[in-house]
């Protein structure tokens, strides 16, 4: 255990170097978000009679995007997948095969420390942004909701990590994984609810998406936060989310084992 705490520490030190970069990235991300929010505001402004669009009030819709931004800051993989793929391609994983350190645990520590620093830095511009929109920002209904939201965000982070990890392990089989990662990310972007809440999709499509792990990355935690999913349906959601995390973990172990069997270190 001690050695992984050490890895966490190294991860924090390494990512602290990029704090200005993170600050800039977080702030730049608010520009397209502002565009999207203005777009939705004019959709609501053009609505005659009804105040709802797809079952969302304007406040819920804007809060949805703001909470997505928060969850995304906490969970999005930044460089992790590229680094894992590069480690495999350049033969750096050889040292992990020889040492009593588990590569998955090692990467998870680096991911966790990277996210901790990024979230801390990003919180400055994001909090200012949310404050400027405070009239449109819904707070969680009670402390229990907030707690459940944090738990589902944590699970979402694990799931996000395992998806990125498995995608990066493709580097055992293909030379350049970047296109695969981008294609996967395009699906994730729409099916996780990053682009818009999935429940405003046509019913059959929204239902189909529910069978993929993606909604549990963003849509589910945000729905818990907004209180749009409660009671037995929420507990069921937690169970499915946990199941996806376990499945992701199993797949990560399995693909790694298969990959290592194929692996011949560069120069080795």
């Amino acid at each position: 255990m001690g050695k992984y705490l050490h890895v966490l520490n190294i991860g924090i030190q390494n990512t602290l170097v990029y704090r200005t970069n993170f600050l800039f990235r977080a702030a730049a991300g608010l520009i397209p978000l502002t565009g999207t929010l203005y777009l939705w505001k004019s959709v609501y402004a053009g609505q005659s009679g009804s105040e709802m669009v797809g079952g969302y009030t304007l406040i819920q819709m804007i809060s949805y995007y703001l909470v997505v931004t928060l969850v995304d800051a906490c969970t999005a993989v930044a460089e992790d997948d590229w680094q894992i793929a590069a480690d495999i391609k350049d033969g750096n994983i050889s040292q992990f095969l020889l040492k009593p350190i588990d590569y998955l645990a090692y990467r998870l520590c680096l991911y966790a420390s990277g996210r901790a620093i990024y979230t801390t830095v990003a919180l400055v511009p994001v909090a200012l942004f949310i404050f400027s929109l405070r009239n449109y920002f819904a707070m969680p209904s009670d402390a229990a909701t907030l707690g459940l939201f944090l738990v589902s965000t944590l699970l979402a982070g694990l799931l996000q990590f395992f998806i990125a990890y498995v995608m990066a392990l493709l580097a055992f089989w293909v030379l350049d994984v970047s296109t695969f990662i981008f294609i996967q990310f395009a699906f994730e972007y729409i099916a996780s609810g990053h682009l818009f809440p999935i429940d405003i999709l046509p019913r059959w499509l929204a239902l189909a998406v529910q069978f993929t792990p993606y909604p549990y990355l963003l849509h589910f935690p945000v729905s818990v936060y907004l209180g749009r999913i409660t009671g037995p349906r929420m507990w069921q959601g937690f169970a499915v989310q946990a199941a996806w995390v376990l499945l992701g973990y199993g797949l990560a172990r399995f693909v790694w084992a298969r990959g290592v069997r194929r692996y011949s270190a560069v120069g080795g």
Partner: peptide
């Protein structure tokens, strides 16, 4: 994806601005 976004939005409205 960008086109899909707009078509989802227009499933709920007639015109934007």
């Amino acid at each position: 994806l960008q086109l899909a976004f707009m078509s989802v939005v227009y499933a709920h409205t007639e015109s934007i601005a």
